[in-house]
């Protein structure tokens, strides 16, 4: 009986021992879990901050790249522009006025041998051209047209021949004589298809067609312009005009 009582008394103790062991084990496990969770948390924060930093770097690289690319592109375009300006400048100014351009493709009327320094009969080509152009800016269109016709008669192979032909068209256009203007702009395209007034002449031909109510003609002129001179300012304008067509 006493033994039983003792046992009974001891049991909880014994059992307690077992429970305690179990408890310790669980504590350990919990501790472990906790630390590992903490570890994971710190690792996650670390990862997160790393990721954030990475994002910043990516953004920055992106911004950097775009900006650099943009400015490079701009620099390239400005160099392009300078080259183009210089080209058109040499075309209109630096070349001796009598010299024919290389790419006339034989369509241009054959150049009569220019009599050198025939001061008596022929007016100075630059002066003749400038006077006619000033008449355009002042609105004396008929005077301007006859001035440019005179220039073309005297200096048909001049580097300013295509310009003169263009301004004749412009002289008519300014007076709203669209049929005549169209004919003159078409001459620019027929005689000087690769020279610096060609894109503008295509554009103006389209405007003439539009004014004359001939939508297909307008569309075709502008489409040809976009195809042949995709990088010209006129190509961009033509795109806008095509959109406006009925």
């Amino acid at each position: 009986m006493k033994k039983t009582i003792l046992f009974l008394l001891c049991f909880p103790l014994l059992a307690g021992c077992g429970v305690k062991r179990e408890y310790v084990r669980m504590r350990d496990q919990l501790d472990y879990l906790e630390t590992s969770q903490k570890k994971m948390e710190t690792q996650m924060t670390l990862m997160d901050s790393l990721l954030r930093a990475q994002t910043d770097i990516t953004y920055q690289l992106n911004a950097e790249m775009r900006t650099r690319w943009g400015s490079l592109n701009e620099r390239m375009m400005s160099m392009d522009q300078q080259y183009e300006d210089q080209q058109s400048r040499t075309m209109t100014q630096a070349l001796p006025l009598g010299a024919s351009k290389p790419d006339s493709k034989g369509i241009a009327p054959p150049a009569p041998p220019d009599k050198p320094k025939d001061n008596g009969s022929k007016p100075d080509p630059k002066q003749l051209y400038d006077t006619a152009y000033l008449d355009i800016t002042r609105g004396n269109y008929d005077l301007a047209i006859s001035g440019f016709r005179e220039f073309l008669k005297l200096y048909p192979s001049s580097s300013l021949a295509d310009n003169s032909q263009y301004w004749i068209g412009e002289g008519y256009y300014a007076q709203k004589k669209y049929q005549e203007a169209l004919a003159e702009f078409q001459k620019v395209l027929a005689l000087y298809p690769h020279q610096d007034k060609a894109a503008a002449a295509y554009y103006k031909s389209g405007l003439c067609y539009k004014e004359l109510g001939q939508t297909p003609g307008a569309r075709e002129s502008w489409q040809t312009l976009i195809k042949n001179f995709p990088r010209s300012p006129e190509a961009g304008l033509a795109q806008d005009r095509i959109k406006e067509l009925p």
Partner: peptide, 8 residues
Amino acid sequence: RDYLVNLG
């Protein structure tokens, strides 16, 4: 503005 847009 464009730089900031590129930065998100």
